[in-house]
Computed example of a mutant assay.
Amino acid sequence: MSTGTPPPTIGVVVLTMNDRPEEFPRAMATVLAQEGVDLDVVVVGNGVEPEQVPPGVRTVTLPENVGIPEGRNVGAANVKGDYILFFDNDAILPAPDVAARLAARLRQDAELAYVQPRIADPDTGVTVRRWVPRLRADATRPGTVTVMAEGIMLMRRDVFERVGGWPGHFFLFHEGIDLAWRCWDHGYTGYYMPEVIVHHPATDPARHATFYRMNARNRVWLARRNLPRVLIPANLATWVLLALWRFRSADARRASLAGFREGLRTDCGPRSPMSWHTVFRLTRAGRPPIF
């Protein structure tokens, strides 16, 4: 009888809208090729009945597109495992030990809520700025991080449930910062593992027609939901100045300001401001929550 440690149990959540007929089968093949782990995989059809689903993989069909974070919440509720791998349907796990290496890091440190691999474009090998979960964008430096790149991330299930999961009403953009901040406020941290590489096309988030509006709206919601009241004006002022500097076109600026107003006027969801101890921990980790 074997006395070895049992393999990590991982629930894998993949969303689909049946709009990636070439990428999706490749992504699923690399998930199912993972070794040294016990997987339970579910594909959530966001407003569609999932197609091209491999044998043995379960599906959930949602009658309408509820957005990425809520779709992931549905998926997490329908998989088993001590850990949950959230995985974009156009990503690739280039080696069969990716999931096992990420899970091993979580097993080593009980204070970690999530681990983030290095994401690189499969053709160029470039890791774009937004995929590096720290302010100083050195993609090769490991260590503690305070945010996450949402598309490929392994998280403890018990922490995910304890902090309330993804903010489903965000629909798209900045849900990872919201989730990461709540993990930190519950005493956990995140970790970046650049030695574990996964592939993802370096697409431009601004390709989405609603990018500028929803990006701005969710930044406001993020601050209103999570920050002590005295820090909200500093956070939002910093964001407005950066947005005006980065977005040079008049249309982008108008859409961003419209989203900013929408974020101030609409329901941001339950407010649970982080403690000042969490503000201190985030600041000490290199990312004060006004940025």
Score class of each variant (00 low, 15 high):
residue 184 W to L: 08
residue 280 F to P: 00
residue 208 H to V: 06
residue 124 T to M: 05
residue 219 R to L: 15
residue 141 R to W: 07
residue 198 V to A: 08
residue 258 A to E: 15
residue 77 A to C: 06
residue 130 R to V: 06
residue 1 M to H: 11
residue 47 G to Q: 03
residue 234 A to L: 13
residue 90 D to W: 10
residue 159 V to P: 00
residue 288 P to W: 13
residue 250 A to S: 08
residue 249 S to E: 12
residue 226 N to P: 01
residue 275 S to Y: 05
residue 69 P to T: 05
residue 168 G to I: 00
residue 181 W to T: 12
residue 157 R to I: 02
residue 177 I to S: 14
residue 230 V to N: 11
residue 15 L to M: 03
residue 229 R to Q: 15
residue 125 G to R: 06
residue 205 P to W: 09
residue 246 R to M: 14
residue 37 V to N: 06
residue 279 V to R: 05
residue 100 A to C: 05
residue 122 P to C: 10
residue 122 P to V: 07
residue 215 N to G: 01
residue 220 V to L: 03
residue 45 G to N: 05
residue 97 D to S: 09
residue 18 N to P: 04
residue 279 V to C: 14
residue 202 A to K: 00
residue 177 I to W: 15
residue 127 T to A: 12
residue 200 H to E: 05
residue 114 Y to Q: 12
residue 164 G to I: 01
residue 103 A to T: 13
residue 94 P to F: 08
residue 240 V to K: 10
residue 163 V to R: 00
residue 108 Q to M: 11
residue 146 T to L: 03
residue 12 V to S: 05
residue 286 G to D: 11
residue 7 P to K: 09
residue 21 P to S: 03
residue 173 F to C: 10
residue 85 L to E: 07
residue 197 I to K: 13
residue 213 R to K: 10
residue 87 F to Y: 15
residue 19 D to Y: 08
residue 161 E to D: 12
residue 241 L to R: 14
residue 118 R to I: 00
residue 248 R to W: 14
residue 147 V to G: 03
residue 4 G to F: 00
residue 233 P to N: 05
residue 206 A to T: 13
